[in-house]
Design a protein around this nucleic acid. Structure first.
Lengths: 336, 336
DNA sequence: CAATCTCGCTTCATCGATTGAGCATGGACG
DNA sequence: CGTCCATGCTCAATCGATGAAGCGAGATTG
């Protein structure tokens, strides 16, 4: 990368401005950070400093400023991916809500890589973040452990931990409701009452376990047993999901519970690239605007990112005792 | 927000570590930032310091470190939204490529708001970013002007400016090819050779103008004129696009050029919520994995984010003279 | 045996902004 | 006329990490 020095223009500092205006650096500082009334600087000087600062294109050096201040007002977030609407909405909402509260948001995308997650958490600590939101982290407690010695609180979003407060969707309830809806539609449209397929996610992962539990509960309510090979969990990858489906024996008139829109990509690719397009129905735990128009889709369980983030910021502002877990209801969005 | 002071544990500094180890802060610093060999610190001391640092959960204070160093290695990006695959891929790719090069990426999402764009640029300057990538900025030259006095170079991505290097898609070529494909398909499937509709984007925006030019060129190649009311540009909003379509008189067997996946959301909502679902075909400038399976879709012109980012980092590492504009070819992805 | 070199550190100024303490000026008051 | 206070600033220490310069001890050289 080219050096800054390539450009003769050095960033102006409060010392430069003080020289130009003919005052002291501390007066300039007070004017520019808004404490000038408290520090009894005259409006006349304040105005002059402000004008010169503007003329010179002054921008405060946050490194210097944050070093001196006792609070950074920085709030960090780590997030696995930006490739679906759920995490996209979380990232956008987080930034907007942080700024509303006068905080500086910093987001890092960790590609579902546990090592990158820890590295990113350390980076946030080094930035003197006051608080870290760990979104969909593979091991939230590990991150809490990394942050603890620095006194950085963490809050888990999407995937819960045991060491720090967590905000998650009501995965069990959402999955049970979605499963019911799919079962109903398969019965209504195909006249078949049979156990569904569960596709996507990781068996070890908390959300997948909870959704599976809801899936099972809905079946049990109807007196249906689910053979274990009906549950295919090959992680969060469209390609692996597609390959797994090609190997499964999925009959005509089946119903599928799709766990995440990423898995849905694999499912839909399998459906459309299948030699004979089978008549089936699916529902998806997670929302995508275009998936709504796929004819086999019966509806999506949309996670309420707004409510989740509101609760996260509630925890940020009012640290709860212990490590409570809040579950947010999902919103069912029927397909066309 | 709760104070850090709530937690008795203060972040350990190199002074704390020096005290524990029984050495000087500068030795600790040298060990921890990897310059210890050059500074002739013994391996024995280095090892002791490293161990204690780990035990104490030490994390360098980047504010202090960056204040002292002459280079920050921070590279900023502003991006309009995270709600589609194009910007999501750019954000993910940018972070990964920056880290590969030993740079610290910082991304801020500006919601297509010109004021927020400028504010975010100022924030990046304050973080001592060495370089700023302005992605899809409404006024790239304005941002270049804000950065200039601080000696921060900017590079425009997606939307070009005149003051700084720009990397954009070949909007003209991509749009011309996509238009041809749609015209061909409408003729082949419906036996109709008629001008298409152009939906989405802003008439003032460079990309939309270029795509419109390609759209027109493809029509001209076939000797087709396009009535001006065939081009509906109501910005980047699905809802406005949907409303505009409801007002237009779009006949059976029409073809539509959809400018962006956001506009496509509006188009598809209009198609499916329409009382009589008209037989039509569309193509989209931009890619979405689920849109591929919509039966009216003939294909998508996918922007090559990998190639664009590679060129951006090329400009970062080898600043070109002047303000060149690089155009990257798009990749046509046929629908099912 | 003095001069020189190497090793393994330590000392201290520095980056730019912040902030408590203090200082000079002028007016009010007793 | 001395005291007190308000006003409008300036001074200097400080945040934590960095790195140039320097220092003392031991080894090597002439």
């Amino acid at each position: 990368m080219a050096e800054i020095g390539d450009n003769p223009a050095r960033r102006p500092t409060i010392y430069d401005l003080a020289q130009i205006v003919g005052t002291s650096p501390s007066a300039v500082s007070a004017v520019l950070n808004g404490t000038w009334k408290k520090r009894r600087i005259s409006a006349r000087l304040a105005e002059r400093v402000t004008r010169i600062a503007e003329e010179q294109g002054y921008a405060v050096n946050l490194q210097a400023s944050l070093l001196r201040r006792e609070r950074s007002r920085i709030i960090g977030m780590i997030i696995p991916k930006y490739d679906n609407r759920y995490f996209g909405a979380i990232a956008e909402g987080f930034e907007a809500m942080a700024r509303e509260r006068g905080l500086f948001p910093i987001i890092t995308c960790t590609q579902r890589d546990p090592a990158l997650e820890v590295e990113a958490a350390r980076e946030m600590i080094s930035y003197q973040a006051e608080c870290l939101i760990a979104t969909g982290a593979t091991d939230p407690d590990r991150i809490a452990g990394v942050c603890a010695p620095s006194g950085v609180r963490t809050i888990n979003l999407d995937l819960p931990g045991t060491a720090m407060p967590s905000v998650v969707s009501d995965n069990f309830g959402g999955a049970r409701d979605l499963t019911r809806q799919i079962l109903d539609r398969v019965r209504d449209e195909f006249g078949v009452l049979a156990p569904l397929w569960f596709i996507g996610g990781r068996a070890q992962d908390h959300n997948t376990r909870e959704r599976l539990r809801g899936f099972m509960a809905a079946h049990a309510d109807l007196g249906l047993g689910v053979p274990p090979d009906r549950c295919i969990m090959r992680g969060y990858s469209a390609t692996k999901t597609e390959a797994a489906l090609a190997g499964a024996q999925i009959a005509e008139h089946s119903g599928i519970f799709v766990n995440s829109t990423i898995a849905l990509e694999g499912v839909v690719r399998w459906i459309y690239d299948h030699p004979r397009l089978p008549a089936l129905r699916f529902g998806c735990f997670d929302w995508d605007p275009f998936a709504r128009f796929l004819p086999q889709n019966i509806g999506m369980m949309r996670q309420d990112t707004g409510a989740m983030l509101a609760k996260v910021f509630d925890f940020v502002e009012h640290p709860p005792p212990g490590a409570p877990r809040v579950e947010t209801p999902c919103i069912f969005e029927p397909a066309n």
